[in-house]
Amino acid sequence: MHAFEYANPTTLKDALALLGNRWGDADVLAGGTDILSLMKDEVYVSKRLVNIKNIKELGGISMSRGALRIGAGATLEQLIENAEIRKSFPSLAAAARGVASPQIRNIGTVGGDLCQRPRCWYYRGGNGLLAKGANGRPLVPNGENKYHAIFGHEGGAYFVSPSSLGPALVALDAKIKLASASGTREVEAAKFFVAPASDTARETALLPNEIVTEILVPAGMRNATYEVREKQALDWPLATASVALQMKGNSVASAKVVLGHVAPTPWLAAAAGQALSGKSLSDSTIAEAADAAVQGAKPLSQNKYKVQLARVAVKRALTEIARGRA
């Protein structure tokens, strides 16, 4: 790991003044579990890390005016332990519970989950975000692509978005607040995640001089997340589904079904949401929505199995709601 400067501000204003206009001039250090790994591997080099763990205004989880406010500095464990989240936002609790291990959840933050870099082994191996070989051709389509995208890779980004909370936040219509020295802005969760078109682009809307400060999640939707992975613990999801339903009596007024770990961004399965609209949840309507969710999938040479996993994840997330478990 290259040497770097360290700053430990206690106010957001001080922290923002310490950031730069280019990535690598200065970076945010929250839980640090991702950026330190990247820097140890020298996949990423930063001249300065700005610790934001001691900034009180970035912490806390609370309900106000019908919306949940999650401070970006809240740890994933704090999210899981929060009674209001477990009751009204089981989708977020389930997504957070799936993250790696207690040790990671104890220090890893909500903002960090959104801003972590892809786990694609070509990227982590130093082949760049879009993983191109010496001849400029992408390495993934004919390479080891077991864990790569089955949707949304037409633009050349074959990695999958590593965020566990992202799909749940997109399904719940959350807004993500960003601050820079020149002001604040609010981005819909669905627009926070972007598929980069070049190696120097990023996977989120965050700019180098910005910090994710808080996440606002509207209440009132039934919601659930289901994750499929290989190991019981310390593993990344193979596919997840997060669903959020606006109910009208026993029928679904509107639905959002979002797949995780199948595309370079959380993947909104619009057809699945439409399939549920106006219907009540039954085994057959759930199965139809699950089928619709994976329509149009474009699996690579080694990851066709993920189509079925994503289908099952949708089915099980919806079933949790139908059975009153979420």
Binding site: Y6, L29, G32, T33, S37, K40, N51, A100, P102, Q103
Partner: peptide, 27 residues
Amino acid sequence: CDRGTCGACTVIVDGRAVYACSVLAID
């Protein structure tokens, strides 16, 4: 592993298990 994936470096910080390899001493 020195990458937060094995647990052999686990210590307790403020009552919580943490990977000592994945936090900076200065932090």
